[in-house]
């Protein structure tokens, strides 16, 4: 499960703290530091510990949102061209045996690169 973590407490190592306390390994998919908007990290945690880790991070002062799904694929608009396939850094998209676009949202790190690359406006971020 993916968590979007916003950090406001300057330089406090909240993610490291949670890993140390719980012993659960967390994968940081993407992190961004912006002078105006603060720090934001997209982390991948095991599904079964998702709620617990989210609570821990909140108690340490982070704002946490559980992302139920990654990129949203509008099958009505999609024409199965595959323009998104080579843009995605994580291999989320592929064409199946019938040349239909398949989307593995679990792999998505919500970078948003595919959104502007879709000629048919068929990909949207759901958060």
């Amino acid at each position: 499960m993916k968590l979007l973590v916003r950090l406001y407490n300057e330089s406090r190592p909240i993610i490291a703290q949670v890993v140390k306390d719980t012993g659960i390994l967390i994968n940081v998919d993407r992190a961004r530091s912006d002078a105006h908007e603060g720090e934001e990290a997209l982390v991948d945690v095991p599904d079964e510990h998702c709620l617990m880790i989210s609570e821990r991070m909140k108690s340490l002062g982070a704002e946490v949102r559980i992302l139920e799904e990654g990129i949203r694929h509008d099958e009505e608009e999609c024409i199965d061209c595959g323009a998104c396939i080579s843009i995605c850094p994580k291999g989320v998209f592929y064409l199946d045996d019938e040349w239909k676009l398949q989307v593995e949202t679990k792999k998505c790190i919500l970078c948003g690169k595919c959104i502007i690359s879709c000629p048919h406006n068929a990909l949207v971020l759901s958060y």
Partner: peptide, 14 residues
Amino acid sequence: EVKTSSLSSYRRAK
């Protein structure tokens, strides 16, 4: 190895 993307739809061509 470089990934390729089609801009046209082979599914719809069929």
